[in-house]
């Protein structure tokens, strides 16, 4: 069909798109990129603020959990008479793990992760979110 294609073309004009169509397309896409960046910035900033605000009470809660569970005494032993524990390090290690308030520790680690990730993503979206169109 190539020969027909070549015959057909002379009678059928190839319309050249105006230059502004190209610019309109890129402008529209850039507008959408900026809009998406602003939405993401708003969401991640809010998440980082909430995670940051929740971190202190969660930290207090975790500390109370450590005191309540007896883990504090075990941890104190390490710093007060660590060498005496060496022959029994395995049993001590498993006892300490067993006593730790897992939920409270997981909570503050999660909040810390959310806070740091949100900050990172907020910073990543900032340049585009504050982009000024000429």
């Amino acid at each position: 069909m190539d020969k027909n294609h070549k015959k057909f073309l002379p009678g059928l004009a190839n319309i050249i798109p105006p230059r502004e169509v190209y610019h309109h397309i890129l402008f529209r896409i850039e507008t959408e990129r900026v809009r998406s960046a602003r939405i993401r910035l708003a969401l991640f900033s809010t998440a980082s603020l909430l995670a940051g605000a929740a971190f202190y009470p969660a930290f207090q809660y975790a500390l109370q959990g450590i005191y309540r569970s007896g883990s504090y005494e075990y941890i104190s032993l390490i710093f007060s008479d660590g060498t005496a524990l060496l022959p029994y390090w395995k049993e001590f290690f498993f006892t300490l793990i067993d006593a730790l308030p897992v939920f409270e520790i997981a909570l503050i680690l999660t909040l810390a992760l959310v806070f740091l990730e949100s900050i990172k993503l907020s910073v990543k979206n900032m340049p585009r979110a504050f982009y000024q169109f000429n």
Binding site: I15, P17, P18, V21, H24, I25, I29, E32
Partner: peptide, 10 residues
């Protein structure tokens, strides 16, 4: 054509 081309590439 302008609008259709814009919408297509978007």
């Amino acid at each position: 054509a302008d609008d259709i081309a814009q919408e297509t590439f978007f």
